[in-house]
C-alpha cells in the first residue's frame, strides 16, 4: 500500500512540470498554432500524470474510474477545441509563424 501511495505521489510530482511548461509555452511561443501545441499536449500529459497518481493513491475503484473518466473527457474536449481553433485560424488566413 505504501509503495502504491508513494509511486502515486511521484507521478503527481512528474505531472506538475508539464503544466508549468504548458503555461510557459503559451506565453513564449510566437503564434497561435504553436501556442495550441503547448496548451493541448503539455496540459493533457500533466493531467494524465496527476490522474494516474491520484488513482494509485485512492483506495476505491469508483474514484479511479471517475478520475479516468474526467481525464478522457478533458482529452476529447481539448483535442476537439484545439482542432476547432486551428481550423478557424486557418480559415481566417492567419499565417503560421515560420523561422526567419
Amino acid at each position: 500500500m505504501e509503495i502504491l501511495y508513494n509511486s502515486g505521489t511521484l507521478l503527481i510530482i512528474l505531472g506538475l512540470p508539464f503544466f508549468l511548461s504548458g503555461t510557459v509555452g503559451l506565453i513564449r511561443f510566437p503564434d497561435i498554432y504553436t501556442r495550441l501545441h503547448a496548451l493541448t499536449k503539455a496540459d493533457n500529459v500533466g493531467l494524465g500524470c496527476i490522474v494516474c497518481g491520484l488513482a494509485l493513491q485512492s483506495a476505491s475503484w469508483a474514484v479511479t474510474a471517475k478520475l479516468l473518466l474526467i481525464w478522457l473527457l478533458v482529452l476529447i474536449a481539448s483535442s476537439a477545441s484545439c482542432h476547432l481553433i486551428a481550423r478557424s485560424a486557418m480559415q481566417k488566413n492567419i499565417q503560421p509563424w515560420t523561422r526567419p
Partner: peptide, 15 residues
C-alpha cells in the same frame, strides 16, 4: 484528426 493533435509535434489544422 483529433488524435493527431496529441502526437509529438503535430496538430491537425484543417480537414
Amino acid at each position: 484528426v483529433n488524435t493527431i493533435s496529441l502526437l509529438p509535434g503535430t496538430l491537425s489544422a484543417e480537414l
